[in-house]
Each structure stands twice: as structure tokens, then as C-alpha cells.
Amino acid sequence: MKYLRNIGRYFLMLGFVFRRPKKFRLFYRQFIREFDEVGINSIPLVALMSTFIGAVIALQTASNIDNPLLPSYTVGYITQSSIILEFSPTIMCLILAGKIGSNISSEIGTMRITEQIDAMEVMGVNSLNYLILPKVAAAFIYFPILVIFSMFLGLSGGFLAVVISGLLSPQNFVLGLRSWFDTYNIVYALTKTVAFGFFIVSISSFYGYYVKGGALEVGKSSTRAVVVSSVVILIFNFIITKLMLLK
């Protein structure tokens, strides 16, 4: 029952978020701020995670494929598809849900309990639109950028790991990366990314915006925001995959 009500409130909220901004200049300022503080600031985390996980995926694949019937470039192929199909768009987004989701929901939650949102409302500002639309819009841009960046670094990490450890020749690994390469996979991955980015930002905003109480509740609701966005990501990962890959 409570879940149904929350879902209803979430969609009502989106109705207020997606309005034309009253002043484009203010929207743009917030947009840039979000892009910078949330998007750009996530680059180190994405870089670190992707490089190392990419390396480990490649090493594990190489160590598992010792069947002489399989050509060695299979390692490149498997690394490529795990990173592009699943690691970068899904696992990376789950990690970002933790970082970005808690950030957004505690920021908005603090504004709620210190009456800053009330202050905006009293002025006649549509606070949902002013606060959340720039976050959503920025996420539509920085999430795909971060994920493409993550794919690139993941593959580079894999490349370095197998080549340095001498498991595979560089040519073979690259041959693997390029075999059966389908641009549709990139479309699929970026579709997931955009959807997940939207869920993370909008769900965390929701939990921040409707928080009641004090600092303790802000903390609790940002935890809830992360948990709920992660669950929603997992469910939609399944749905989108079913729809896009198994037509």
C-alpha cells in the first residue's frame, strides 16, 4: 500500500519536474553546476573501477580458456562483450547509484529540513522544477559519457593486463575485441545507461524532497534512495535486456 502511494507520488512529482524552466539562465547555471559537481567529479571513481575490473575480467577469462580448440582471441571477445553489455552500463551504474544517489538525496533532503525548499515555494518558485530538472538533464549527458569512458578504460585495462602478463599477443586481443562487434550492443548499452541515470537521479531526488524530520531521517532516506534505485536498476536491466537483445 505504502509502495503504491509512493509510486503515485513519484509520478506526480515528475509532472512538476518536467515543466519549462521559468528562467533559462538559472536553469543553465544549475545544469552546469550539476554536470561539474556530480558528473565530472565521478570520473576518478569510474576510471579506477573500470580499469581494474576490466583487467580482472580479461585475466579471469584468459585463465579459464585453456581449451586448445578455442582460438586465443576469444579472450578479447569475451572481455569486450562483458564490459560493453554488462559491466559498464549496469555494474558501473549500480556503483554510481551509491555515490550520486546518496549525494543528491542528502543535498535535497537537507534543503527540505532546513526549510530552504519552503522558502522557494513561498517565493512562488516551482522548487521541483528548479532543483530536479537540471539534475535530470545533466544526468542525461554525463551518464552516457561516463559509461563510454568506462568501456574504453575497461577494455584498455583488459588489454594491458593480458599483454603485460604475456597471456596473449596484442594483435590477438585486439582481433578478439573486434570480432562479432555489433554497434547495436552500444545502442543497447547506452539505452540502459540513460534509463538507469534517470532512475538514479529522479528516485534519489524523490527521497530527498519528501523527507520529514531531521538529520537522522536525511541519512535514512538517502540510504533508501540508493537501495531503491539499485533494485529498480536490476529490474529494468532485466526488462530492457529481454526487450532489446532477445527480439
Binding site: T110, M111, T114, E115, Q116, D118, A119
Partner: peptide, 8 residues
């Protein structure tokens, strides 16, 4: 507002 409610 009683607690000022400035945008921090």
C-alpha cells in the same frame, strides 16, 4: 523563516 532558511 524562524530558522532563516537561507540557501546554503
Amino acid at each position: 523563516f524562524q530558522g532563516s532558511a537561507l540557501f546554503d
